[in-house]
């Protein structure tokens, strides 16, 4: 087979691997982009947004209510990866979470349509909180 066939075949193979991995992991995670997980519950007048930080933030998209004070509760379980470097740039929140435990971040009431982006220190993992 000549060099161009090799090149084209390799590109198709690599593209196939990437697309395949994407499709497989998307379907196993079971989270579509339109479905945002609801914020968990209320506690004494504030809504609690629960996020688990380990190899990423889960759930990665959360729907919360606008207009009420919010507490973001981040849980770590033997988390030593980048998720432990928790940051919400728009609020100036930057904290190294303990490897195992719960950290709480009070957030003022947000307006409808606002979004809060939580990221790991390296920018690879993110969680979006959509306020409605």
């Amino acid at each position: 087979m000549n060099k161009y066939t090799f090149l084209i075949a390799s590109i198709i193979l690599a593209a196939g691997i990437i697309v395949g991995a994407f499709v497989i992991t998307r379907s196993s995670a079971g989270v579509s982009s339109s479905g945002a997980a609801p914020a968990t519950h209320m506690e004494g007048g504030a809504q609690i947004v629960e996020i688990t930080a380990k190899g990423g933030y889960y759930p990665s998209v959360i729907a919360a209510r606008a207009g009420i004070p919010t507490i973001i509760r981040v849980r770590t379980r033997s988390t030593f990866d980048c998720s432990a470097a928790f940051t919400i740039p728009s609020l100036g929140i930057r904290k190294m979470l303990p490897p195992s435990g719960v950290s709480e971040f009070p957030v003022p009431a947000q307006r409808a349509g606002d979004e809060l982006q939580a990221l790991c220190g390296m920018g690879m993992y993110s969680a979006t909180i959509q306020f409605r």
Binding site: G56, P89, S90, L119, M122, G123, M124
Partner: peptide, 17 residues
């Protein structure tokens, strides 16, 4: 570099895992 900008809140996250 793109991830650094995302982590600083300058741009929306692009390369996520």
């Amino acid at each position: 570099m793109v991830n650094s900008f995302a982590a600083a809140g300058i741009i929306r996250p692009v390369f996520g895992f």
